[in-house]
Design a protein around this nucleic acid. Structure first.
Ligand SMILES: [Mn+2]
Ligand SMILES: [Mn+2]
Ligand SMILES: [Zn+2]
Ligand SMILES: [Zn+2]
Lengths: 145, 145
DNA sequence: CTCCTAGATCGTAATTATTCCGATCTAATT
DNA sequence: AATTAGATCGGAATAATTACGATCTAGGAG
């Protein structure tokens, strides 16, 4: 998904295209990874020093409602956001020490179809699946804080 | 798992058994569901009015390190804790409106074994798998806040 | 049983993350 | 160019979590 595609999509949905929103999207589309709200704020401030957390959060939640952004809630209460690249739905292998992550090649679709059958009255909108542990570098250092 | 079993386990591990810790365990063992830190504080305060958040959080993290408690991080940044009943490992179907949940009958074990093979250098310690949406009661009310 | 001490708790303050809000601004339509 | 619904800013408010010094106590030694 390119920036222009995304902007077109927003325009179609009747959402205003502001420079701040464009800049937030540029960050999210820049590297294919997840970001904290603060990381996004810092990056956007390089171009627009006056931008506020309010704008970042409002934009992220807007994009989430539109299905363009995914919210990730990791162990320890760490909240992250990443662009929802079409056909690139994925989950993460997250190191509890350094926070680095790798994409997982696998999504529990069989569980999902089973649960849909078992709970037909429940309107499923999303799911999360993350695996935690320690990467090679951080093994043995778990207890050193 | 009963309270006495758990206390014995803690004793074996060289952890002090305080009345506050016992009370927190009683809450967690009482109903087989997850709790917020605040819910636990309130319940424990019924017996020990002076107990503090500090004690609740420290105890929860202690129990988590010992594998007796699981930390759940739901959409919206909601953090919950539940007792890790042996052989009752499970995941949740969570309503985004009312917060009520149901146990899932299914754990993505095939994904997990696959990931272990693909990332033998990574030391996996835990995983999360939650499904979100709207329960029957809350359907159609999603947008009413 | 009493003493001792490492570790636990309390009370409160500090920190962090997120949300709220009134004043001002602006994208997009007319 | 004027209009206005919706967006942004700056800062305050709220909520969640962590920190810390003073005090207390569980559990082991004697
Ligand atoms: Mn990712
Ligand atoms: Mn549960
Ligand atoms: Zn998936
Ligand atoms: Zn599982």
């Amino acid at each position: 998904m390119t920036l222009n595609d995304t902007l077109l999509r927003l325009k179609t949905l009747g959402v205003k295209i502001t420079p701040q929103r464009q800049e937030i999207l540029k960050v999210l589309l820049g590297e294919e990874r997840y970001y904290s709200a603060e990381e996004i704020l810092k990056k956007v401030q390089e171009r627009y020093p006056a931008v506020s957390f309010d704008t970042v959060y409002r934009t992220l939640y807007l994009l989430k409602r539109l299905g363009l952004v995914v919210e990730l809630n990791f162990q320890g209460g760490h909240r992250r956001f990443e662009f929802n690249h079409e056909d690139k739905h994925h989950h993460h292998l997250v190191c509890l020490k350094c926070g680095k992550s790798q994409k997982l090649s696998c999504c529990p679709t069989d569980c999902l179809t089973r649960i849909k059958k078992e709970h037909p009255e429940f309107a499923i909108t999303s799911h999360s699946f993350e695996i935690y542990g320690y990467c090679r570098k951080c093994q043995g250092l778990e207890s050193l804080g």
